[in-house]
Simulated assay, not measured.
Amino acid sequence: MTEIFDGIDADAPTLARLHQRLERAAQDADLLDVAYRTLDTAVGRLLLAATPLGLVRVAFLDVDGDALATLAQRISPRILHAPARLDDAATEIDEYLAGRRTAFDVALDLRLAEGFRRQVVEHLRDIGYGRRESYATVAAAVGNPKAVRAVGTACARNPLPLVIPCHRVVRTDGSIGQYAGGPAAKSALLELEAA
């Protein structure tokens, strides 16, 4: 199959090479503010995005189809599909979902979490693999024990679900509560970690 690319007939390998050249040129000229790729997983199709500082966004595409538009508004419109820049993050997520990884090592860019939400996200990083905390426990841990609903909102708006484990926060009665990827994804992640 060939496509017309700027008046030139191009097959898939040619288009791939042209895209790789575009990626390298954008990177070399410091014009690539956000690189992204998608990743099909057992818990849904994910969007992974990174800045030069690190992984900035993990989004469940079935739930958050506007993630790229939000990144363009909040960070920069200079966004490019550059999957190779996210290979390490994709590998770590695959290893985690396969039960071969219990913590993430990729660099993170937390600029999308501000104020109280940032405090919650920082605390979430301390909830170990296989552990659970209630929304009330998290609220108390960040110094605002009455902010249980705000903790729920912070978890729902966590820019890096899976990597920053908001799925480990449950209701006081032990029920799982809500999750950015939906309740089935949250249940699957909790079951994975319980195994």
Rank of each mutant, 00 (worst) to 15 (best):
R157Y: 09
I4Y: 11
A184C: 06
P52K: 09
E191T: 11
D11N: 14
S134N: 07
D126H: 15
P145Y: 11
D64N: 06
A26T: 04
H167A: 04
R37C: 15
L160N: 03
D173P: 03
K186F: 02
L110Y: 11
P52E: 09
A103Y: 13
A35K: 07
A69P: 08
G128E: 14
A16M: 13
R17Y: 14
D28C: 13
A195E: 09
V106S: 06
R111V: 07
L53C: 05
G181M: 03
V121E: 07
R149Q: 12
H167V: 01
R101F: 11
V169P: 03
E3L: 14
A147G: 12
A89I: 01
D126N: 14
A49G: 06
L80N: 07
I8F: 13
R125C: 07
A195G: 15
A50V: 00
T91Q: 09
I164W: 04
I93M: 05
Q20K: 15
Q119A: 14
E3F: 14
A141K: 12
L124V: 06
A69F: 07
L189G: 03
A184T: 11
L108F: 09
G99N: 14
A147K: 10
Q20S: 14
A25M: 13
V138C: 03
E191I: 05
T137M: 09
A141F: 08
P159A: 01
P165V: 03
V148A: 00
G54A: 07
Y129H: 14
V151I: 10
G128K: 10
V106D: 06
G181Q: 04
Y129T: 05
V34F: 01
G174Q: 01
D30Y: 12
R171K: 13
R21E: 13
R118M: 01
T172I: 04
A84T: 02
P145A: 10
R57D: 10
V121L: 12
A10S: 15
R125V: 11
P52D: 03
G181D: 05
R125T: 04
V58F: 01
G115N: 02
I8D: 14
G44S: 05
L46E: 01
C155Q: 00
V142Q: 12
G44Y: 00
G128P: 05
E92K: 05
R85Y: 07
E133A: 09
I8Q: 15
Q27P: 07
Y135F: 14
R111K: 06
D126L: 15
R118Q: 07
L53G: 04
S187Q: 15
R149F: 11
D88Y: 07
I8Y: 14
L71S: 01
A50M: 00
E133H: 07
V43W: 02
A180C: 03
D40Q: 13
D6F: 13
S76E: 04
T38P: 10
F116D: 07
Q20C: 12
